[in-house]
């Protein structure tokens, strides 16, 4: 039976595994963390329909049954393309696996919000990232550092995205929608709270997203201010002062919030460059892996038998990630069938 190794047990890795298992392959997943689900595992609810992130992961995992082995806490130490066309996959504690095909689904890391020093993440008490807020939603308690219910909450879009100064010029795609989702969730929790979203451009690109934006305004009274903060500072009461221009009104303003949430963008996962170097894969200037052709061969690489899926090739929503992973699985199936002949 042909043997396939997948790097990463996130949504992409798991989704691809279920198709490949269905097609009768022997699938092994190597995961660097102690759990599966990747970044989604730390999320509470997902846009656009507020389903639980944990349920989504269960749904993606269910078809795997016992047929797929997932090795947790494994970091890849070497990847070698062998003479017989197979790929030797070595981790720090496993025997070398000889894979007939390798799927890289190494995903993304959130941008390190500490790097935007002027926003005071990790410095000021009440500056958080969207991931921190998800953890709070998960714990069922959204409170300021001093344990109070926030009355004013601000969301800053594009933190570490579309920003030449941190070297990330691209749009991370999901942050706008996430901010709209979280802003609405905050209002569900605290109907009297004043919620602001500070955006440069609102990118509501899929069918249901515009409705989410509309509802955030109509049902929840979220105030969308088109402007990017130049800095945040802490006040004596630990609220956060924001300095921004309302660009539509052409008015500079100061305002303070009890919680400031930074929508940190997507970066390639920390291992991406290492994996690319070991296999001779291409990384684009933003650090994401580049497929052979973004239109027609979005899952294929220049290296025979090595495929790509999910956010390792660039920011994606979860539905896009799942579709991409399934497409990668089909490519792998076709590749292995051709090789057999």
């Amino acid at each position: 039976m042909k043997n396939i190794v997948i790097i990463g047990a996130g949504v992409a890795g798991l989704s691809a595994a279920s198709i490949l298992k269905e097609k009768g392959y022997d699938v092994t997943i190597i995961e660097k963390k102690a759990y599966d689900g990747g970044n989604v595992a730390s999320w509470d609810r997902l846009f656009p329909d507020s389903r639980r992130a944990s349920r989504l992961i269960d749904d993606v995992k269910r078809p795997l049954g016992d047929g797929v082995t997932i090795h947790y806490d494994q970091s890849i130490t070497s990847l070698v393309k062998m003479k017989d066309g197979r790929i030797g996959v070595k981790t720090d504690s496993l025997e070398t696996i000889h894979a007939d095909a390798l799927l890289v689904a190494s995903g993304f890391s959130l941008f390190d919000a500490h790097l935007k020093e002027e926003y005071g993440y990790g410095i000021y008490d009440n500056v958080y990232t969207q991931a921190d807020l998800e953890s709070m939603f998960n714990a069922g308690k959204v409170l300021t550092r001093s344990g109070d219910a926030p009355r004013r909450i601000g969301f800053v879009h594009c933190v570490g995205s579309r920003d030449e100064k941190v070297g990330n010029r691209y749009c991370s795609k999901v942050c706008c929608v996430t901010a709209v989702k979280q802003a609405s969730e905050i209002k569900q929790l605290y109907p009297d709270a004043q919620v602001y979203c500070f955006y440069m451009d609102l990118r509501m690109f899929e069918l249901p997203y515009e409705d989410m934006y509309f509802n955030a305004q109509k049902l929840y009274g979220v105030r969308f201010i088109r402007g990017r903060l130049c800095e945040a500072a802490e006040k004596m009461d630990k609220s956060v002062v924001l300095k921004v221009e309302d660009t539509l009104a052409g008015q500079t303003m100061n305002l303070s919030v009890d919680m400031l949430v930074l929508m940190a963008g997507m970066r390639p996962a920390s291992d991406t460059t290492r994996i690319a170097t070991m296999l001779g894969l291409h990384c684009g200037k933003e650090g994401f892996l580049t497929p052979v052709d973004t239109f027609s061969r979005g899952n294929e690489t220049e290296v025979d038998g090595v495929f790509l899926a999910g956010t390792c090739t660039g920011p994606k929503t979860i539905p896009q990630t799942i579709a991409d992973a399934r497409s990668a699985a089909i490519c792998i199936d076709e590749y292995l069938k051709k090789r057999k002949k």
């Binding site: 440069m200 451009d201 402007g227 660009t247 500079t252």
Partner: peptide, 13 residues
């Protein structure tokens, strides 16, 4: 792209 960060931080502004 008209984000207004320059104006928000402008000392003269």
């Amino acid at each position: 792209i008209g984000c207004g960060t320059c104006t928000a931080g402008c000392t003269a502004g």
